[in-house]
Amino acid sequence: TQVHVDGVTYTFSNPEEAKKFADEMAKRKGGTWEIKDGHIHVE
Rank of each mutant, 00 (worst) to 15 (best):
N14K: 06
K20Q: 12
F21D: 00
G31T: 07
I40C: 05
T11E: 11
I35D: 10
A26G: 03
E24D: 10
K29F: 15
K20T: 10
E24H: 08
R28D: 09
D6W: 04
K29Y: 15
I40R: 00
G31K: 02
A22Y: 03
E17L: 09
E24Y: 12
T11V: 12
V5N: 03
T9A: 08
V42T: 03
D6N: 08
K27M: 10
V42W: 04
G30E: 06
K19P: 00
K27I: 10
V42Y: 04
Y10K: 05
D6F: 06
E43W: 14
F21S: 00
F21P: 00
P15I: 15
W33Q: 06
D23S: 11
T11N: 11
T9D: 06
V3R: 00
T9H: 07
T32W: 15
H41P: 02
G7H: 07
F21I: 01
K20E: 12
V3M: 01
T32K: 14
E24G: 05
T1P: 05
R28W: 11
E43F: 15
G31V: 06
P15E: 14
E24S: 07
W33G: 05
N14A: 07
F12M: 01
G31P: 04
G31L: 07
G30H: 05
I35P: 06
K29V: 15
V3I: 03
G7A: 05
F12L: 03
A26F: 02
F12G: 01
K19R: 12
D23K: 09
I40G: 02
A18S: 02
N14I: 06
V3S: 00
G38Y: 02
Y10I: 09
V3T: 01
S13W: 10
F21H: 01
K19I: 15
H39Y: 07
G31I: 04
D37Q: 04
T1L: 11
G30K: 09
E17G: 05
W33I: 15
K36F: 13
K20P: 00
V3F: 02
I35N: 06
T1W: 13
T9S: 09
N14L: 08
T1I: 13
A22K: 02
E17I: 08
P15L: 15
H4Y: 13
T11P: 06
K36Q: 11
H41C: 14
T9Y: 13
A18Y: 01
I40A: 02
E34Q: 08
T9M: 13
V5G: 03
N14D: 14
D37R: 00
N14W: 06
I40L: 05
E24F: 10
S13Q: 12
F12S: 00
E43Y: 15
K27G: 07
G38L: 04
Y10C: 14
V8Q: 12
V5E: 01
T1C: 14
H39P: 02
K27P: 03
W33S: 07
E17T: 09
E24N: 08
E43L: 15
R28P: 03
H41G: 03
I35L: 10
H4T: 07
A18V: 01
K19W: 11
E24A: 10
K29I: 15
A18Q: 00
D37T: 02
K19Y: 14
M25K: 04
E16R: 06
V3C: 03
D6E: 08
E16F: 08
A26D: 02
D37Y: 05
E17C: 15
V42G: 02
T1V: 12
V42Q: 02
D37K: 00
I35H: 05
H41E: 08
A18L: 02
V3H: 00
A22G: 02
S13H: 10
H39Q: 13
A18F: 01
K27F: 10
A22V: 03
S13M: 11
W33D: 05
E34R: 08
T32S: 14
V3K: 00
D23P: 00
E16Q: 09
V42I: 12
I40W: 04
V3G: 00
K19S: 08
E24M: 11
R28F: 11
T1D: 03
G30S: 04
A18R: 00
A22P: 00
G38A: 04
G30C: 14
E17R: 05
A18H: 00
E34W: 15
I35Y: 13
V5R: 01
N14C: 14
G31C: 12
E34V: 14
F12H: 01
A26Q: 03
E34I: 13
R28E: 13
I35V: 12
E43D: 11
Q2C: 13
V3E: 00
D23H: 07
G7K: 06
K20A: 13
K36C: 15
H4P: 00
Q2Y: 13
H41N: 07
W33Y: 07
F12P: 01
S13G: 10
T1K: 04
F12A: 00
A26T: 08
S13N: 11
K36V: 15
I35M: 12
H41V: 14
I35E: 14
V42A: 02
D23C: 14
P15N: 09
T9I: 15
M25H: 06
G31E: 04
I35F: 11
F12E: 01
T11Q: 10
T11S: 11
E16T: 09
S13T: 11
G7L: 04
E34S: 05
S13C: 15
M25L: 09
D37E: 08
E24C: 15
Y10G: 02
G38V: 03
V8M: 12
Y10H: 09
H4A: 03
G7P: 01
H39K: 07
E34T: 08
P15W: 15
G31Y: 11
Q2I: 13
G38E: 04
G38W: 02
P15G: 08
V8L: 13
R28L: 13
W33L: 13
K36N: 08
H4F: 13
T1M: 14
G7V: 01
Q2N: 10
K36W: 09
E17D: 13
T11M: 11
H39I: 15
S13V: 11
G30R: 04
H39M: 14
F21M: 02
I40T: 02
K29A: 12
F21Y: 05
D37A: 04
G30V: 01
A18E: 00
